[in-house]
Write a protein that binds this DNA or RNA. Structure first.
Lengths: 244, 244
DNA sequence: CCAAAAGTGTTGCTTTTACACCCATGA
DNA sequence: TCATGGGTGTAAAAGCAACACTTTTGG
């Protein structure tokens, strides 16, 4: 809003405000996003991000969480604001300003099936973001490809300097499971031994539960919970793409 | 927007969409923000961020740039989206969702005096963010303190890993001038010699003009322009607050 | 036994830091 | 001449990557 005298909210231009959510998980060794298939024009038959109107009495974040629960039944996952997309013409029907959120959910994603008529599905993000795939048969509605791309970028970047990766893990997890998150989201191989030293040496990142597990095979591994640290210092460095 | 069937933009709830801008500069050795004094209720007499409605045919970023030009006459400065603030009740008159932008402008800030009736002023951000100052006599309207704080945080963080600092410098600048930006925004002292090596050694950050200057006294210094690099690798590390 | 994953030790290299030192100007 | 800021050299310390090696399970 403005401090200028020209500001009179009773004469606001007609705009609709919605939230769209990029919900990511790790499924079968790849990064996947929740998408809904559109049953009506415009973009009938295309996939779109889950989302909807912001109702008068809820915050933007609450609206995003509500939409997520309607589609997945899940609550309490990581949720952060991603950005706002409001170009005129992005929705052919009217001016729609959409506040996008990024959400992350642990490994075995909830089975889909909300109160909603539209069907939601998990798809590998590469299907929609990788240009080298066979003829973009998979097209996202509106500017949702851009939003999905921004969400994936955000997640990739934040793994370096925040504890975000643990949002992809169950409540208790091993160092190996955490490493696999980094490897899948970044699409790289990490040295298991140096990774182990790094994450266990970063104070506040991981908290040992004292328990061990043998799931995954091999020698039993310690179980950890997320620690209180929000920013990782030193960061977990992403290997720079090897120049050839 | 939604892929669900419940989405009908013709029945959107009444919401106003505005842009607010955190415009920062460096003035007299401190970080300062442009604020306008409100001439009407609510918050009459308080300071607020410059901003206003998004008109039907402009993008969000264009609206922010337009508001800035109306207040300062300046154009072409760095401008990036900061975040969106839409809690119900943040404006007592109606539901207002505000998309905040962060803008940076070089050293000698343009004199203020736009077409607008309201008067704009530069104030050190510490006046509004530092809690230890005498009784918060300086209060920002709405949730603008939070927005200002988020903007300053963003700028501080991005100095580390992006070329953002050059947005505070004139077209041509010396390494010493660039260093002063870092020192003022971060509120730390940096070793001039190591800083020089670091920034001149980061490929694509600075481009030598070939010219020299003696402004600022002492031995003549090389002049540089911003280079093409968007992300700094390696980053310019902010000294960690020394634990005592 | 072997394979697989967890975890520790060590070594050489790169980066960072701290600071000694010299340079080129204006006053 | 001195004060001021610009810039280079260098050595100690810290951080990081690569990889040999040991541990503990399941099959």
């Amino acid at each position: 809003m403005s401090g200028s005298e020209s500001y009179d909210p009773s004469k606001y231009p007609p705009v609709a405000v919605t939230v769209d959510v990029v919900l990511l998980t790790i499924m079968e060794d790849s990064l996947a996003a929740l998408l809904v298939r559109r049953g009506a024009d415009p973009f009938k038959g295309s996939y779109a991000l889950p989302g909807g109107f912001v109702t008068p009495d809820e915050t933007l974040a609450t609206a995003a969480a509500r939409e997520l629960q309607e589609e997945t039944g899940a609550r309490g996952m990581h949720l952060e604001q991603l950005g706002t997309y409001g170009d005129p013409g992005r929705d052919p029907r009217m001016r729609v300003v959409s506040v996008a959120y990024l959400a992350l959910i642990p490994n075995p994603p909830e089975v889909v099936g909300g109160s909603d008529a539209a069907s939601a599905e998990w798809s590998p993000v590469a299907t929609f973001l990788d240009n080298t795939l066979p003829e973009s048969t998979s097209i996202l509605a509106f500017d949702h490809r851009r939003i999905l791309k921004d969400g994936v970028e955000r997640a990739r970047g934040k793994l370096e300097y925040s504890g975000l990766a643990t949002a992809f893990c169950a409540d208790e997890f091993t160092v190996g499971e955490l490493r696999r998150v980094y490897e899948i989201v970044w699409g790289v191989d990490l040295d298991a031994r140096n990774f182990h030293r790094k994450v266990t040496g970063t104070l506040g990142f991981l908290e040992p539960t004292g328990e061990m597990t043998t799931r995954g095979g091999g020698r039993p591994a310690q179980l950890f919970r997320r620690g209180p640290t929000q920013t990782l210092n030193p960061p977990i460095l992403r290997p720079s793409p090897t120049v050839i």
